[in-house]
């Protein structure tokens, strides 16, 4: 656990952070608003204090109430993985600036997050579905997309793509959207 990194992060991004800097095991976590993603990541990438040169992972998360995009970074100046969570995206129209200007390799990861969650990355010049076919309408990894108990016994026999045809409002009584823990 790198205490110095925590102090440096708090000193540099104190105003931008929307939550406390958390540390557990070898991970450091900061939370920022969606609009601050380019500045924060650019600073982390370029400034000599941080030098987070490697984008280790980019993921979308559906917390049940809002959307998040999560960036994991690696730096040779710190022993920790840095997790940057862009929080509070609306579930109806999640939008976040793209980081392809920094890491061109983030393009496909953003496409994947778009395909699975419907998060729009502004600035990504190839934001289309990557896994599911173009005529697919649902976003499978959203929490209001329910899996069948056994797709092979369903009427369509699993031959077609499973689609989400109902919102949470008309879900049956047993169906409850899982919500992420508050942490």
């Amino acid at each position: 656990m790198d205490r110095a990194l925590r102090r440096r992060l708090e000193a540099r991004f104190g105003k931008v952070l929307t939550g406390p800097v958390r540390q557990r095991h070898d991970e450091t976590e900061i939370r920022i608003g969606a609009g601050d993603v380019p500045e924060v990541l650019l600073a982390l990438h370029d400034e000599p204090d941080f030098r987070f040169g490697l984008l280790s992972d980019l993921a979308g998360v559906d917390t049940g109430t809002s959307m998040q995009t999560v960036y994991h970074l690696w730096s040779d100046s710190s022993g920790d993985w840095l997790r940057v969570i862009a929080d509070g995206l609306s579930r109806d129209d999640p939008r976040v600036p793209s980081v392809t200007f920094l890491w061109k390799g983030a393009e496909w990861m953003e496409r994947e997050a778009y395909d699975m969650f419907g998060i729009t990355f502004e600035g990504n010049r190839d934001l289309r579905r990557i896994y599911m076919p173009p005529d697919y309408a649902s976003f499978p990894l959203r929490k209001d997309f329910f899996l069948a108990d056994d797709a092979s016994r369903s009427p369509a026999g699993g031959v077609r793509h499973m689609e989400q045809t109902h919102g949470p409002t008309n879900a049956e009584a047993g169906a409850r959207i899982r919500q992420a823990p508050a942490s």
Partner: peptide
Amino acid sequence: ATYAISDGTDQPYRMRIH
């Protein structure tokens, strides 16, 4: 890489595979 989120149940809440 794996990014796992737990919500306290016996199933992972989100499991991202890199």
